[in-house]
Structure formats: structure tokens, C-alpha cells
């Protein structure tokens, strides 16, 4: 059922003009990663865009990217979360379509992703929060968190 929902929502959302997509827009690419991949990998697919946000937000803290760039990928991650939420709502209103264990595990992933995104945003907006850690320490956290999110999303070794 979740795969069915993902496929139905696989079309890109309304936010972007077609001509921008042809230019290889980062937002559209990330949105396709989130919404399209739901059809292929279920719950795992929503994790991918959030991993991109984590990498961008931590890069922002060390001054490697701009806040605007983080906002772009964050929007895409939000869309993927919304897709996952719609899948959960559907499974809750259609009892028996998805097993209880599967729904519970999906809810855990959904809640964790929301908390994850909120914490990253707090870190980004916190005044000089990132500068209180050494660049090497932040880089190590960046690599570990990005790698772990990729591993969860695509099953790569951590």
C-alpha cells in the first residue's frame, strides 16, 4: 500500500516550473529523490532527502555552504516527509492493508525524521552554535551522520 501511495505521489509537486527542472534544479532533484523513491524503497526513501539536509546544514555550520542552499534541500526533505505522512494516514484509515508492526516502524521513522529536521534547523539558526566546535570535529560529525543516513536510505555499509 505504501508503495502504491508513493507511486501515486511520484509526480513532482507544484512548486517548480518545468523549465527549471530541465536545468537540473537541486530542489527538483531532491524532490524526485524523496517522492519518487517512495515507490521503490518505501519508508527508507524518505530518509535520503533528510540525509542531504543533514550534510548541507552541517556544512553550513562550518561555512561551506549558504543558508539558501540548505533551505532548498530542506524544502525537498519536507515534501518527502509529507509523502510519508500521507502514506501513514492511508495505512491507518485502511486497516489490514499494512501490518501493525510495519505501521509502527514507519511511525517511528517519521517521528525521528521530524525531530531530526527540527534539531538541524535549531543548530542552523542558533547564534554561532557551529563555531563553538572545532571544524575538524564538525567535519567528523558531518561525515558520520551523512554516511549513516545514506546507509539507512540505500543500504550502503556504514
Amino acid at each position: 500500500m505504501l508503495q502504491r501511495m508513493g507511486r501515486r505521489q511520484g509526480a513532482l509537486p507544484f512548486h517548480h516550473a518545468r523549465r527549471d527542472r530541465r536545468r537540473g534544479c537541486q530542489l527538483c532533484a531532491a524532490a524526485e529523490l524523496g517522492t519518487g523513491a517512495l515507490a521503490l524503497g518505501g519508508e527508507r526513501a524518505a530518509i535520503g532527502p533528510h540525509g542531504v539536509v543533514a550534510g548541507a546544514a552541517l556544512a553550513f555550520l562550518v561555512g561551506d555552504t549558504t543558508g539558501r542552499s540548505v533551505d532548498v534541500v530542506r524544502r525537498a526533505a519536507g515534501l518527502s516527509s509529507n509523502s510519508l505522512e500521507a502514506s501513514i494516514n492511508r495505512s491507518l484509515t485502511e486497516p489490514g492493508v499494512a501490518g501493525r508492526d510495519r505501521v509502527e516502524a514507519t511511525l517511528v521513522i517519521y517521528a525521528a525524521l521530524r525531530l531530526f529536521a527540527g534539531r538541524l534547523l535549531a543548530m542552523q539558526l542558533g547564534p554561532r552554535l557551529g563555531t563553538k566546535l572545532s571544524p575538524d570535529a564538525l567535519a567528523a560529525w558531518h561525515d558520520w551522520i551523512s554516511g549513516a543516513m545514506k546507509a539507512l536510505a540505500w543500504g550502503q555499509p556504514r
Binding site: R44, A105, M123, K132, L152
Partner: peptide, 30 residues
């Protein structure tokens, strides 16, 4: 008032905790 470095570390640990929860849930999904 919390020290910024401690807050930053706390935030990173919270991220790690969310990762752990997701990993457990993924394992349950199989």
C-alpha cells in the same frame, strides 16, 4: 545559561539518537 559548545554537542548527540531509532525501525521493517 547553557554553554554553546555543550548545546552543540547535545544537538549532535540528539541527531545520533534519532539515527539509532531509525536504524532500529528499518531493522524491524526488514
Amino acid at each position: 545559561m547553557p554553554r554553546p559548545a555543550a548545546v552543540a554537542i547535545d544537538s549532535l548527540v540528539r541527531l545520533a539518537r534519532q539515527l539509532e531509532l531509525m536504524a532500529d525501525a528499518i531493522a524491524r521493517l526488514g
